[in-house]
């Protein structure tokens, strides 16, 4: 109730921000962290071109592709759950949320397998500059997937408890905005770390 008023105060014209104002501040802070990481990666690559091109070939691109598709589809499920709750279809909203979480868990499983495989190849933080960036970027993102899944889980629990309906569902929208951010970052990471060479 009060959240709605506060959110509205932030938007002068047009439409109100979906979700909570605070989550948007958080999203932008997070995006800035990743933006700095991406920029640092680009500059490091520029000065160690040969190394980056060689090391990049060792990465498992098929898994990364599968992970990208998983996250994008999970984001789609998230959109559908937000649309469902806007139409007051609570059961459908929960089903889509569960699907979004399931796909996210798929990402986690694949990523853990990839990290385990990397460990056998001797890819560590100290191995070289590329591996340092690859591991810290993807692991940092991995932690965000975990955080996103935690948020989705708590929203699902609240939805099961009947906390949301067509007129009040800021929580679902906030979780959605955060989950889209996790997906957006991965799309860029996928291109930057795995694809471009």
């Amino acid at each position: 109730m009060d959240t709605e008023t506060l959110t509205r105060a932030d938007t002068t014209a047009t439409q109100p921000l979906p979700g909570d104002f605070a989550i948007w501040v958080f999203i932008f802070a997070e995006l800035t962290v990743f933006g700095i990481l991406f920029t640092a990666y680009a500059f490091a690559r520029e000065s160690h071109l040969a190394l980056f091109n060689m090391e990049q070939r060792l990465l498992d691109r098929q898994t990364a592709l599968a992970n990208t598709l998983l996250l994008i589809t999970s984001s789609y499920a998230m959109v559908r759950s937000v649309l469902a709750i806007r139409a007051d279809q609570i059961a459908r909203c929960i089903r889509w949320l569960l699907l979004a979480m399931g796909l996210g868990c798929g990402f986690v499983v694949l990523k853990i397998r990839e990290f385990a495989h990397d460990a056998t190849l001797g890819i560590t933080l100290s191995h070289n500059l590329f591996d340092m960036f690859y591991l810290s970027l993807t692991f940092f993102h991995f932690m965000h997937v975990i955080l996103g899944l935690t948020i989705l889980a708590s929203v699902t629990l609240r939805a099961l408890g009947g906390h949301y309906n067509a007129s009040s569902h800021t929580g679902v929208e906030s979780a959605g905005a955060y989950w889209h951010m996790v997906d957006l970052l991965w799309v860029i990471l996928f291109a930057l770390v795995y694809v471009i060479h």
Binding site: T14, Q15, L17, P18, V79, H180, M181, V187
Partner: peptide, 14 residues
Amino acid sequence: AWIAFDYMGLRRTQ
């Protein structure tokens, strides 16, 4: 990225 921007619901806001 633009599409994600769209997904995230900023297209029509402030």
